[in-house]
Write a protein that binds this DNA or RNA. Sequence first.
DNA 1: CTGTTAGCGCCTTCAC
DNA 2: GTGAAGGCGCTAACAG
Lengths: 328, 328
Amino acid sequence: MTITSFQIAELCGLSRGTVDRALNNRPGISPKTREKILKAAEELGYRPHFLAQSLVKGRTKTLGLVMFDVQNRIFAQLFHSFEAEARKQGFFVYLALSNKDPDLEIEYINNLLDRKVDGIALHSVNKGKEFEAYLHKARVPIVSFGNQISKQFPLVWINDKVAIKEAVSLIQAKGYQHILYVSPPLRYKGKSNIFGPEQRHKGFLEAVKEQAELSYTVITEKDFLAVIGHYLYLPHKKTAILCTSDMYALDVLKFLSSKKILVPEQVGVMGFDNIDTLNYVNPALTTIDYSVDDIGTTLVESLIRKQEGQKIPNLTTISHRIIVRDSI
Amino acid sequence: MTITSFQIAELCGLSRGTVDRALNNRPGISPKTREKILKAAEELGYRPHFLAQSLVKGRTKTLGLVMFDVQNRIFAQLFHSFEAEARKQGFFVYLALSNKDPDLEIEYINNLLDRKVDGIALHSVNKGKEFEAYLHKARVPIVSFGNQISKQFPLVWINDKVAIKEAVSLIQAKGYQHILYVSPPLRYKGKSNIFGPEQRHKGFLEAVKEQAELSYTVITEKDFLAVIGHYLYLPHKKTAILCTSDMYALDVLKFLSSKKILVPEQVGVMGFDNIDTLNYVNPALTTIDYSVDDIGTTLVESLIRKQEGQKIPNLTTISHRIIVRDSI
DNA sequence: CTGTTAGCGCCTTCAC
DNA sequence: GTGAAGGCGCTAACAG
């Protein structure tokens, strides 16, 4: 049998209204009866009914986090900080994994909305006017990360363009003459939201345009290793492989190792994200680091602020930096 | 403005009761009016209010998953399968990370209970009579994994004892004479719930007892690398390092590599869990594999079955197997 | 077949 | 300072 505020009221010979005042620290009640009520609540082991509270208040103290998956350590870390910050603020989080399936993503968002979450952080695969219109109908704050949805929705992320440009500069400075740019998501161009990868791609193209000496190949195949293998056997210039995620870079390193190709002696490799897995691989991977914890924390803060009616910036840029290690 | 079943009733000139029958496919309504209502609902874009529904039904279609963290890939994978299975069954999941903090774990469980989740899967750090009594008061199914709470609560996990025994057999068969057994959680003995590590430890002790030729050292220090370093410089027998988690094994491999100690030539190393990170490290780590996906799926199934009033097994053992690679 | 009623447990005016 | 009443949106039992 579950204890309701009514039981307390009965026990104390008071009304539910008064009990509520005591329980929620509201004025208009004598210290004495407040004491009495709180004591009774304590003794009965009273716990407010969250659903009933939410129903009447219209707020659930719950946030939704929708992202691709949690295979890539960077997103696991993101969740970690998101969850920690949410907890600090008294929120719980629904973690929904879309597996990059647009329909599933919509289904999840629908469900989160039905469940009246107070905000949604979204790494979207959907995009377009229709999707935007859909999101606009949602009555709760939505902030994005990774892929921008549109200028209408706040984005918390790094400056992908600049980051890649810096990577290219480094590669060029190290004397490389050719770059294999590995970004499989680009093959979804026009199909799903790949804002982030496209930003990086743009940055890349701008950078190589500025460096006339650099030639390049953009690899978007899912089986990028096969393509890389193909290029490496051609007579070539000093080549670096620039991967838009450490996950790809790890596969590349493994592949090169299996082909007995030395890194960085024969070919350079660079990653992106600085995931903690890199601690364990050889050679140490040069990559781009940023505080994914800041992203998680900022997402939560933005969501809560916006829900409280405050203005939040449309774009929050998290800083990044290149970490030079041994692979390039 | 949000659409309620009342709006539909008004629009159709019917009562909410009738509308409800149509919406929930219940008998006692003419096909014609049902049609009419469903059409109206469609047009208005009606969505049932989840909280109100849950409040009256007493079920929330939500599961809680409480675990240490998601740093260790094995738990990230576990969440993946848990979430996927939950979604299939129409459930959402609250993921709560205790960071191995007993108080935080309790706080989370309290919150989940307040939120009336339909079940909780728990990798507990708490234990003891008091904790059990506390959990028993919970009106929802609770199943455990990793660490058993007590015989009263179902456990879904592998047979840790047998797994370690098999590992020792392998090590012995490979001609090793000394084992450094690395299990830092053991130092929490008596303080927090380390059922899983203790099972492994027991299995280990039984196994070495059966193999008189094998000597061993149990390392429980947090800074286990320092201890390992110490032992390796002593005159010694052919030594293998048996780690109770791939995470430790990765650190060990890195440490040995930094000391220019060759694996397996100079010392053997073995892990536990077969996390996918192992794909990227050298030498390839010999480890113990099991289907963590099965664990996640089974946890969800058990929770739902139990909530539906069915009996569920007190112990579900997931099979494991040793994967021999290059490190031992 | 359909409408009415009484909750689920809590919060929030409005009177007294 | 306290009580009574209405409502959040939906469901379920009971009438008609």
